[in-house]
Nucleic acid binder design. Structure first.
Length: 837
RNA sequence: GCGAGAGUGGCGGAACAGGCAGACGCCCGAGACUUAAAAUCUCGUGGACCGUUUGGUCCGUGCGGGUUCGAGUCCCGCCUCUCGCACCA
C-alpha cells in the first residue's frame, strides 16, 4: 500500500536511520563562517562519557536541537557542536575495578555514546567533535596553563588536600560527600602537599560585576555565583600583641563597633598561636585543642549547628583605637582561609560573638544604641546588629553608626592602624589532582633552575600509557620513570616532571573556544574564527554546574581576553538551565530500579517520539516527571499526523500552495486558514520568546485536530486542496525542529523537494488572525451570565447597547439598580448592580 | 537562619498585559468500526446540586485578609514543599 512515496504506516525504524544517513551524506549540518548571514552559536554542555546516554542528556540535547534547527530556519548560520569531557575519575576507577585501561574505557564509551546521540538525530556538525583526553586537545589545555603561568595566574603553594586513610588515596573535592569518602565512607582528613592554583581571586570583582552584563542568565544562577564570590566591605584593623608588639590584623565589616571589642579570637591554624604559647603553661592544652580542631575540620564544615568551642591562650592584644587590653582566644569557628584568620569579638553587636562571650563569661560592651531605647549589656539576650547611634566610642560617640563606619575607616587610615578593605569568600582554584587520567601539568623541576615551564614547542606533555593503578596516594605517574625523568629545558641537566594532572574543570573551561577551529595544530583556536563565532548565543545545561563550571569558564574567558587571545569578556550570552528528569517524584536511580533507558525508548517508539515527549511534558526549566503513558500519547500523536499527511499525500502532490492567493470559499476554509496562521504565530512566539516547547507542541496538536475536523466535515469534492497543501507544508515545517525525521519523510510525502530543514521558518499573516465575529462574555457582578456573538471591532457604546437590549440580561437586571457597566471591546461586558432601584 | 523558586482536576501541565480557570496530553467512561480484540475515530470527563430536554445554580487555583466592576494573576500576613548557601567576622 503506497501513496506517492509514503507508506501507510509510520515506520520510524526505517525512516530515522535513513534520514540520519542522508543528512550525513549531504553534510546538512556542516557549518563554516559566512559573513553574509547572522551567526548563532548554540551549545549544550558536553557530556562526560560515562558509557550511556541518560534521560537528562536526552532532554538537554533535545532542547538544544530545537533551538539550533529553529535558528537555522530563521536564516542564522548556526554552530552546533558536540564533544566529550573525557578526563576524570570514573575512568580510573574502572581501571582499578575491571583492569581496563582508562583510555580504552573512555574511547569505547565515546563510541557508544556517539552512536546513541546519532540515533537521536541531533543536528550536530560532527566534524567539529572534540575529546578533551585527545593529545590534540590537551596540548592546548597545557598551553593555556603556560599562559596562565606566564601572566602570574598559575602558582604553587602548600595546601591541604583531602585524604582518605582507608583507601590510602587523595580525593578530589567531588569525591568528598558530607566530609566522608564517597567510596568507603571513612571520614576524610587533610594532608599538606605542594599544589598548583589558578589565581581566580584576582578576577573576583570582575566576575561579580559582570554578572550585571548577563540579563540572559537565570537570576538563580547569578545569585548563586554572587554568594559564592561573597564580597563584603569593611576594614582591616591592626591590633598588636600586648608586650611584644606583634601585629594581628583583623577584618571587620563593622568598624563602627571597634570600641566594643572585648576579646580577640584566632583561627586554630593561625601562625601566631604557636608562637604566643610556646614555653607557657598554655602550650599543652592549646596544642591539643588545635589538633582536635584540625582533625575535625572536614566534618566541621557540614555540621549544622556546631557548638562554639574556644580556649584562652594566655596572651593579650591591644585595641588600637582605645589602647584597651583584651584577651586572645582561639576558637573552632574562626577560619584561617577567610579574612586574616583573626576576628575581633564584639558580643553586644554580633550574634556569634554574644553566644561565645556568654558561654565563656567574657565581658559585653554596648557601643551602638537603638534610635529609641537603651541596651543593657548584662542582660541582653540578643545581639543588637541593626544600625543605631554610637555610644561610649570616644570621639565618635553620638554619630549614626552608618556614618561612623566611614569616619572610623578614615581615622584608621590617617593613623596608619588600618585601612579600607573588601574581602571575598572566593578562594583560588586548586587545579592539582594526584591522578592519572587528566592533562599533565606542563612543569619541570630542576635542582638548579627550580620550577621550569615546559617550552611551548615541546607540548603536548603526553600522558604515558603503561602505568599501574595502585592506591598509593600519589599520582600513578610518579611510578613511571620514563615520564618523570627528563632534562631541564633551561640548563639541560637531569630534572623531574610534575606528576600531578589538572582538574577536569580546566579542560571544560575553554572547550567552547576550541569548537570554532577544532582541528588547528598551530593554535588553540584561530582568532578570526573565534571572533566570528563567540560568544555562545545560547548555552544549555543542568543547574548543577551553576557555580563551578560556569564560573571557571567565565574566569578563563576574562583571562584570555586580558592576554589578547579572545575579544569577548563573557563566554555565554544566554543561559538556559534545564530541570531534572524524575520518575515517581524522585531522581531516577539504579538503587530504586526506576531508570528509563533512552535506548529502550528509541527502540520502541523512535527518537522523534522520545524527543517530542521530553519537550512536551514540561517547560525546559522545570523538573520533568517521566511518564510511560505520556510517551505513548506522543507516539499516538505522531501516528495521527502521519495518517493525516498520508491521507492527503496523493491529492496534494503537485498542487501549488501559493500562500497569498488562496481562495477561501467556505467558512470551513476560512477557519482552517485562520488556524494555520494562528498556529504559526503561537509556535514561533513560544520558541522565540519563552522556550515554551510544551505549549508550542500543544498548539501543533490543536492544528492537527483542526485539520482532522476539516477533513471529516468538508465533503471531499469541496476540500480546498491549495489551502490543504499550504497547511500541510506549514504543519510539517513547524514540526521539523521537534521531530526532524518524520517531518523530513512527510515533506517528501507531500511532494516537496529538498530537506525541510533547509526551509525558511513560516511567517504568519496578521490579517488571517482577525476573526469576523467574536464571543462577548456578559457578567453581572463578575459572574458569567450570558454570551453573545457580535462583529469584531464593535464600538464600546454599540456593544453596551447590544448587551443591555438582550431579553435575558433585561430579565436578570429587573429589580436591580445598575451602578456601572464596564466594557472591554471584543471581550467582555461586566454590569455592576445593587439590589433594588 | 539567609536567598531563590513553586503550590491550579485523578495525573503532567495551560491561562503571555487583571477579563470565560483547567488549553494540550495522560488516565477513565460511552459510542462507532470489528465475529472478537487491538489499533483507529467520535463524544464526554473539576466538585456539589437543580431540571424531562435545551439548560441552570452554587462552590472551586495552599490558608486568612485587602485592592478592583472583575484576582490563579496585584498588595499585606501566614502555611507547605523543592533547590542553593549556611559559623564568612
Amino acid at each position: 500500500m503506497k501513496r506517492g512515496d509514503m507508506e501507510a504506516r509510520y515506520n520510524f525504524k526505517e525512516i530515522e536511520p535513513k534520514w540520519q544517513r542522508r543528512w550525513e551524506a549531504d553534510e546538512l549540518y556542516k557549518v563554516a563562517e559566512d559573513e553574509g548571514k547572522p551567526k548563532f552559536y548554540c551549545l549544550e554542555m558536553f557530556p562526560y562519557p560515562s558509557g550511556n546516554l541518560h534521560m537528562g542528556h536526552v532532554r538537554n540535547y533535545s532542547i538544544g536541537d530545537v533551538v539550533a534547527r529553529y535558528k537555522r530556519m530563521r536564516g542564522f548560520n548556526v554552530l552546533h557542536p558536540m564533544g566529550w569531557d573525557a578526563f576524570g575519575l570514573p575512568a580510573e576507577n574502572a581501571a582499578i575495578k575491571h583492569g581496563i585501561h582508562p583510555a580504552e574505557w573512555t574511547w569505547n564509551n565515546i563510541a557508544n555514546m556517539r552512536r546513541q546521540l546519532m540515533a537521536m538525530g541531533i543536528s550536530y556538525d560532527w566534524e567539529r567533535e572534540i575529546a578533551t583526553c585527545h593529545p590534540n586537545y590537551y596540548k592546548w589545555t597545557q598551553w593555556l596553563f603556560l599562559q596562565m603561568y606566564k601572566h602570574g595566574l598559575a602558582y604553587r603553594k602548600k595546601a591541604a588536600v583531602n585524604w582518605c586513610p582507608s583507601c590510602a588515596t587523595v580525593l578530589a573535592n567531588e569525591q568528598v560527600v558530607g566530609g566522608a569518602c564517597e567510596r568507603c565512607g571513612t571520614p576524610v582528613t587533610h594532608r599538606d602537599l605542594e599544589q598548583w592554583f589558578f589565581r581566580i581571586t584576582a578576577y573576583a570583582e570582575r566576575l561579580l560585576q559582570d554578572l550585571k552584563k548577563l540579563p540572559g542568565w537565570p537570576e538563580k544562577v547569578k545569585v548563586m555565583q554572587e554568594n559564592w564570590i561573597g564580597r563584603s566591605e569593611g576594614a582591616e584593623v591592626v591590633f598588636t600583641v600586648a608586650g611584644s608588639g606583634q601585629e594581628i590584623p583583623v577584618f571587620t565589616t563593622r568598624p563602627d563597633t571597634l570600641f566594643g571589642v572585648t576579646y580577640m579570637v584566632l583561627a586554630p591554624e593561625h601562625p601566631l598561636v604557636e608562637e604566643l604559647t610556646r614555653g607557657t603553661p598554655y602550650e599543652g592544652p592549646v596544642r591539643e585543642f588545635v589538633e582536635a580542631a584540625r582533625h575535625l575540620s572536614a566534618l566541621d564544615r557540614t555540621a549544622t549547628e556546631k557548638e562554639k568551642e574556644g580556649l584562652f591562650i594566655g596572651a593579650y592584644a591591644v585595641n588600637p583605637v582605645n589602647g584597651q587590653k583584651i584577651p586572645i582566644w582561639i576558637a573552632n569557628y574562626v577560619l584561617m582561609e577567610y579574612g586574616t584568620g583573626a576576628v575581633m569579638g564584639v558580643p553586644a553587636h554580633d550574634e556569634r560573638d554574644l553566644a561565645f562571650a556568654r558561654k565563656y563569661g567574657l565581658p559585653v560592651k554596648v557601643v551602638i544604641r537603638p534610635p529609641e531605647g537603651e541596651l543593657d549589656a548584662a542582660t541582653m539576650a540578643e545581639a543588637y546588629v541593626e544600625p543605631g547611634i554610637m555610644v561610649d566610642s570616644g570621639p565618635f560617640s553620638g554619630l549614626p553608626s552608618e556614618e561612623g563606619k566611614e569616619r572610623i575607616i578614615r581615622y584608621l587610615e590617617e593613623k596608619g592602624i588600618g585601612k579600607r578593605r573588601v574581602n571575598y569568600k572566593l578562594r583560588d582554584w586548586l587545579i592539582s589532582r594526584q591522578r592519572y587520567w587528566g592533562a599533565p601539568i606542563p612543569i619541570i623541576y630542576c635542582d638548579q633552575c627550580g620550577t621550569v615551564p615546559v617550552p611551548e614547542e615541546d607540548l603536548p606533555v603526553i600522558l604515558p600509557e603503561g602505568v599501574e593503578f595502585k592506591p598509593t596516594g600519589e599520582s600513578p605517574l610518579k611510578d613511571c620513570p620514563d615520564f618523570v625523568n627528563t632534562t631541564c629545558p633551561a640548563c639541560g641537566k637531569p630534572a623531574r616532571r610534575e606528576t600531578d594532572t589538572m582538574d577536569t574543570f580546566v579542560c571544560s573551561s575553554w572547550y567552547f573556544l576550541r569548537y570554532t577551529s577544532p582541528h588547528s595544530r598551530e593554535v588553540p583556536f584561530e582568532r578570526d574564527k573565534v571572533d566570528y563565532w563567540m560568544n555562545v548565543d545560547q548555552y544549555i545545561g543542568g543547574v548543577e554546574h551553576a557555580i563551578l563550571h560556569l564560573m571557571y569558564a567565565r574566569f578563563f574567558t576574562k583571562a584570555l581576553y586580558d592576554f589578547g587571545l579572545v575579544g569577548v569578556e563573557e563566554p555565554f550570552q544566554n543561559l538556559l538551565t534545564q530541570g531534572m528528569v524524575l520518575k515517581d517524584g524522585g531522581k531516577m536511580s539504579k538503587s530504586k530500579g526506576n531508570v528509563v533507558s533512552p535506548e529502550d525508548i528509541i527502540e520502541r517508539y523512535g527518537a522523534d517520539t522520545a524527543r517530542l515527549f521530553i519537550l512536551f511534558a514540561a517547560p525546559p526549566e522545570r523538573d520533568l516527571e517521566w511518564s510511560d503513558h505520556g510517551v505513548e500519547g506522543c507516539y499516538r500523536f505522531l501516528n495521527r499526523v502521519w495518517r493525516l499527511v498520508y491521507n492527503y499525500s496523493g491529492k496534494v502532490r503537485g498542487v501549488e500552495a501559493g500562500q497569498g492567493e488562496i481562495k477561501l470559499g467556505s467558512r470551513a476554509d476560512r477557519e482552517l486558514y485562520r488556524l494555520i496562521h494562528a498556529t504559526i504565530k503561537k509556535v514561533t512566539e513560544d520558541i522565540e520568546e519563552r522556550f515554551n516547547f510544551n505549549t508550542a507542541i500543544s498548539a501543533i496538536m490543536e492544528m492537527v485536530n483542526g485539520f482532522y475536523h476539516y477533513q471529516d466535515n468538508v465533503p471531499e469534492g469541496e476540500q480546498n486542496l491549495p489551502l490543504v497543501k499550504m497547511g500541510l507544508k506549514n504543519l510539517v515545517t513547524l514540526l521539523a525542529p521537534f521531530a526532524p525525521h518524520i517531518a523530513e519523510e512527510m515533506w517528501q510525502g507531500i511532494g516537496e523537494e529538498g530537506s525541510v530543514h533547509l526551509e525558511s521558518w513560516p511567517t504568519y499573516d496578521p490579517q488571517a488572525l482577525k476573526t469576523e465575529e467574536v464571543t462577548i462574555v456578559v457578567q453581572i457582578n463578575g459572574k458569567v451570565r450570558d454570551r453573545l456573538q457580535v462583529p469584531a471591532g464593535l464600538r464600546e457604546e454599540d456593544l453596551k447597547e447590544a448587551v443591555l437590549s438582550r431579553d435575558k440580561i433585561a430579565s436578570l437586571l429587573s429589580g436591580q439598580q445598575v451602578l456601572k457597566v464596564v466594557v472591554v471591546p471584543d471581550k467582555l461586558v461586566n454590569i455592576a448592580t445593587r439590589q433594588g432601584g
